[in-house]
Design a binder for these strands. Structure first.
Lengths: 143, 143
DNA sequence: CTATTAAGTTATAGTAACTCGAAGATGGTT
DNA sequence: AACCATCTTCGAGTTACTATAACTTAATAG
């Protein structure tokens, strides 16, 4: 069976060795072993689980909640309903998060287009009604 | 002209008063005034700018970079090309972030469906090949 | 006209989730 | 034997809030 060092795991997951150790120290990787030198030894399933942790983390779940979820998984089948609820909530939150990001993206796009236009037309300081927004709504006091 | 207190701004933007003050103290709201009592006085354009800050923050830009962008806006038209580049980068990063979130969402959906199935079928501990993944890839050592 | 309440202020401390550096152990190579 | 890479722990630093304490001021209630 394949085993991996911290560094190999870091490389495989895209995390830093610091983060991998941090997660392990905080109980998020409950089955990671140690060799006779006290070095962490990761299995393939540890890496898969770490990827699940990363998935939850990236979608905004705090570490203590991920820890809680980890404990439930370790406890076994009895906790499936609770786990189901956790994942359902996380799904909702992620869908919401994506929606919000898409709205923010629209705002950013607007800015990009606006700047592109200014640079093309090369107009220094217009008197159009859109002027306030052109100036990022920052200079209403410059009267 | 309409003016607002910290609390009103907090309510309008969905931020806490702590965060609004924090942003102001760190130079992200350069045109906020003070009244004779030293209380912060926000204008409509301050709120609009704060919403821009929130947009950038929510899409992952660190505060010091937002501060830098703020300074560029204050400096005026000459900085438009630099600002254009910043926004273009942010746009790219946000598009990427959304993509990643959508992938994570797919993973979460998979879990939700999986748990739903377990709960429906009520099978305690199957011997199927998918067993490892059913158990969140955590118990390969429990042999 | 004082008393209490509400809201503002600053300064400082606490928290989450990393992020890093120091000091030391071990194992392999020249 | 010396060196280098890689591991370890521990403690400190960073970012972006988040909360508390101590204080000031303005408005209302008795």
């Amino acid at each position: 069976m394949a085993t991996y060092s911290v560094q190999q795991v870091a490389k495989k997951t895209g995390l830093t060795t610091y983060t991998v150790r941090y997660y392990h120290d905080h109980g998020l990787l409950p089955f990671v072993q140690r060799d006779k030198n006290n070095n962490r030894v990761f299995s393939d399933s540890d890496i898969e689980w770490l990827e699940m942790v990363t998935c939850l983390r990236s979608t905004g779940m705090p570490l203590d909640q991920i820890k809680n979820y980890t404990n439930l998984v370790v406890e076994g089948e009895d906790t499936v309903p609770e786990r189901y609820q956790i994942m359902l909530d996380q799904q909702k939150r992620t869908i919401n998060e994506i929606k919000e990001l898409q709205q923010h993206l629209a705002t950013i796009k607007f800015k990009v287009d606006h700047y592109a236009e200014i640079m093309e037309n090369h107009e220094p300081d217009s008197f159009e009604p859109s002027n306030i927004h052109e100036k990022e709504s920052l200079k209403t006091e410059a009267k």
